[in-house]
């Protein structure tokens, strides 16, 4: 198994075999990222393809300081967001002040798997989905999300709070 460093060097040389190996190594994980930001599998495939093109194009610019996977993931997310932006960018209007605080309670998730939680997230409005995925899964701050999505930081917060509350409601229903 080639290390990331070898793969990166191979990809910089535009060695197709190395590019193929890099793809094989990360495609599944990256595809899951794409799926979270896409409505359909076809759209996710397109994002994956587009993002890998960018990765192969820009791989020489990767400074081997941070995680390579993280760098790839960021490209995936950015590509997915651009795709969403072109497709149907829509945020639910709202302000943080009007968002009720989630009820502090315990939630039972033993029967909740990845598919279920993803299905629940997919039921959220698209704006909520994006902010929730970026904040809760990818770990972006609200400030970064604001810059990524070109929205106010407060809007990001309110979107996230609403998304979180909706998810809680759905979880409660499952629990009951």
């Amino acid at each position: 198994m080639n290390s990331d460093e070898e793969l990166i060097k191979g990809c910089i040389r535009e060695d197709r075999e190395m590019q193929g190996l890099l793809y094989e190594k990360y495609a599944d994980k990256m595809f899951a990222v794409c799926m979270r930001y896409s409505n359909t599998r076809e759209e996710a495939e397109d994002v994956l393809q587009e993002a890998f093109i960018k990765i192969f194009d820009k791989i020489s610019k990767f400074r081997q300081e941070g995680s390579f996977e993280g760098w790839m993931r960021r490209i995936m997310v950015n590509t997915a967001l651009r795709s969403w932006d072109k497709r149907s960018r829509k945020f639910e209007p709202g302000d943080l002040d009007h968002v009720e605080e989630p009820v502090q309670r315990e939630l039972v998730l033993d029967s909740i798997g990845v598919k279920e939680i993803m299905a629940m997230i997919n039921k959220l409005p698209e704006g909520y989905q994006m902010v929730f995925n970026l904040f809760a899964v990818e770990g972006y701050s609200h400030k970064e999300i604001g810059e990524l999505l070109n929205i106010n930081e407060s809007t990001s917060r309110s979107q996230y709070a609403r998304a979180r509350r909706n998810l809680m409601t759905m979880l409660e229903k499952i629990e009951s």
Binding site: D28, L48, G113
Partner: peptide, 13 residues
């Protein structure tokens, strides 16, 4: 749950 989740990716190479 989700960060390291993998989906079987199609071969779009």
């Amino acid at each position: 749950l989700l960060y390291n989740h993998s989906e079987s990716a199609p071969n779009v190479m």
